[in-house]
Amino acid sequence: MATGGRRGAAAAPLLVAVAALLLGAAGHLYPGEVCPGMDIRNNLTRLHELENCSVIEGHLQILLMFKTRPEDFRDLSFPKLIMITDYLLLFRVYGLESLKDLFPNLTVIRGSRLFFNYALVIFEMVHLKELGLYNLMNITRGSVRIEKNNELCYLATIDWSRILDSVEDNYIVLNKDDNEECGDICPGTAKGKTNCPATVINGQFVERCWTHSHCQKVCPTICKSHGCTAEGLCCHSECLGNCSQPDDPTKCVACRNFYLDGRCVETCPPPYYHFQDWRCVNFSFCQDLHHKCKNSRRQGCHQYVIHNNKCIPECPSGYTMNSSNLLCTPCLGPCPKVCHLLEGEKTIDSVTSAQELRGCTVINGSLIINIRGGNNLAAELEANLGLIEEISGYLKIRRSYALVSLSFFRKLRLIRGETLEIGNYSFYALDNQNLRQLWDWSKHNLTITQGKLFFHYNPKLCLSEIHKMEEVSGTKGRQERNDIALKTNGDQASCENELLKFSYIRTSFDKI
């Protein structure tokens, strides 16, 4: 039985969820670079991206490699990797027998973001014989899940209580170790020597080791999670996991709180800001991140802002960003909400898709409305799209047979046209069989910064309504002859009103 693990408890099935942008060198404390989270699957090609990484700022997932063999891993080693800020997950990587050479110096898994409450997941690794993470000293947050690894031993010899604050939620089941077939031998045991430290858990006094050649490092209890030197002297209180010299914040392997210019500090002093819960960055760093993602459509890219001495992905609820200094300031009234469309555009074809934009005031991208039916549609669209004030790209209304009016965009005031449909149009209306009105132009103002209007096959939309939009939106004169079809717009509506004058002759039985 794995020490510190839980057996036999019912657990939810383990679901495996399925960018080499360097964020800056980590400095003297770390020998390499800070790398983003990685999802490495199918083959070993991307694994080489770990070569210079000291910190993975995010998670590391290595999974679904069915053609790899043990010899493929023999020359692979990433000794610079010290810390993973989120979680480490391995799933069905064939041929991998140990992690001792792959990650010989991995010391800390912070667990800032977890995989279903777990910071370390080893699942269905069919050839893994031992973990071998002999320098792993601290899992700051989260638990361990090690399950269905039929060859995995050296679990009962690990004292997880020396690595985690609590072992109650560890789930370590259905491994070879369960069948008591392992016969784990710690260093020196074969020669009758006791080389590794022994600890007591559940009444068992057991030597602690990761492999037959690597003991588990056990520091004096007084050192807590700070770690200790090879001689057993406690590291500085700002260290986490390990250090090369005692009581020196510049000799830590990793930091308990924050890293700044080669030393570990309790908090980031001005003019620095907390970033990702582990390091200090200056304003320029946060500003660069903001600008890199301002026009990016890459998933996970955030326009970072500053709030409460932190550089964070977005302002919290009730705050909006001051564009001059990136500071989050309290909103006066309802907060603006910028919604970034991942692929640059979004099609609204149902109430469900409209709900995804609920509360958005600025759309960074283009909207395509293609709704053919739905219950209580006008009210639903207004509830979900009615706060949109600005669209950076274009607005396209296409084959939306259920629409009679666009009044559900009740606050839309600006279409920038930074991206144009077919390279020309910022407003595009095609084949809307029941569209009769755009907006009530006596109450609604709309500016279209650039781009043209396109109207074709809107049989109940009168040309007068379209011409009014040209005047109000500032697009009059931009359109070419064929942009607004004269014969297919309003051709099934009563669009022309003329005053009919009647004269009559009164007659009676005795007068003409």
Rank of each mutant, 00 (worst) to 15 (best):
H28V: 08
L29S: 11
L29T: 12
Y30S: 02
P31Y: 09
E33Q: 09
V34I: 02
G37K: 03
M38C: 02
M38A: 08
D39G: 02
I40K: 00
I40V: 15
N43G: 08
T45F: 07
T45H: 06
H48M: 03
H48Y: 05
E49N: 05
E49I: 14
N52G: 09
C53D: 00
V55P: 00
V55Q: 01
E57Q: 12
G58W: 00
I62R: 02
L63H: 02
L64M: 10
M65L: 07
K67G: 12
T68P: 06
P70D: 15
E71L: 04
R74G: 02
L76E: 03
S77W: 07
F78L: 07
P79S: 06
I82K: 03
I84K: 00
T85I: 12
D86A: 05
Y87G: 01
L89R: 02
L90E: 00
L90Y: 01
L96S: 01
E97H: 10
E97W: 14
L99H: 00
K100C: 11
K100E: 13
L102C: 03
P104R: 01
N105V: 08
L106S: 00
T107H: 04
T107A: 08
T107G: 08
V108G: 02
R110W: 04
R110S: 12
G111D: 00
G111F: 03
S112T: 05
F116G: 09
N117K: 07
N117H: 06
A119N: 01
A119V: 03
I122S: 05
E124F: 08
M125L: 02
K129I: 12
K129W: 06
G132E: 01
L133I: 14
Y134W: 13
N135Q: 12
L136R: 01
N138G: 05
I139F: 03
T140D: 13
T140F: 05
R141P: 01
R141V: 10
G142K: 01
V144S: 04
I146P: 00
I146W: 00
I146D: 01
E147T: 06
E147R: 01
K148G: 03
N149M: 01
N150V: 09
E151F: 11
Y154M: 09
L155N: 06
L155M: 03
A156I: 05
D159V: 03
W160S: 01
W160P: 00
E168D: 07
E168W: 13
N170G: 05
N170L: 10
L174S: 08
K176P: 12
D177Y: 03
D177A: 15
D178G: 11
E181N: 14
C182P: 05
G183H: 11
G183Q: 07
D184N: 13
D184P: 04
I185L: 04
I185C: 15
T189D: 05
A190D: 14
K191G: 14
G192L: 15
K193G: 08
K193I: 04
T194D: 03
T194L: 13
P197C: 10
P197F: 05
P197L: 05
P197V: 10
A198F: 10
A198Q: 02
N202G: 15
Q204M: 06
Q204Y: 10
F205G: 13
E207N: 15
W210C: 03
H212Q: 14
H214N: 12
C215Y: 03
K217A: 10
V218H: 11
V218Y: 06
C219V: 03
I222S: 04
K224C: 05
G227N: 02
C228A: 02
T229I: 10
A230L: 05
L233S: 13
H236I: 02
C239V: 01
C239Y: 00
G241R: 05
G241M: 01
S244Q: 14
D248T: 04
P249Q: 11
T250D: 03
C252I: 00
C252S: 00
V253H: 15
C255P: 00
C255W: 00
C255H: 00
R256E: 08
N257D: 03
F258S: 06
F258C: 07
F258T: 04
L260V: 09
D261F: 04
D261I: 07
G262V: 04
C264M: 00
P269Y: 06
P269N: 10
P270E: 09
P271L: 04
Y273A: 10
H274L: 04
F275A: 03
F275H: 12
F275N: 15
D277P: 03
W278V: 05
W278P: 01
R279P: 00
R279N: 06
R279A: 12
N282D: 13
N282L: 03
F283V: 15
S284T: 05
S284F: 09
F285S: 11
C286D: 03
C286A: 06
H290Y: 10
K294L: 10
N295D: 09
S296M: 12
R298Q: 02
Q299R: 09
G300A: 07
H302K: 11
Q303W: 05
Y304V: 11
Y304F: 13
V305G: 09
H307A: 06
H307N: 00
N308L: 12
N308E: 04
N309V: 05
N309F: 06
K310W: 14
C311F: 06
E314S: 05
C315Y: 00
P316I: 11
P316V: 06
S317M: 12
G318A: 07
T320P: 04
N322E: 00
S324K: 08
T329K: 05
L332F: 12
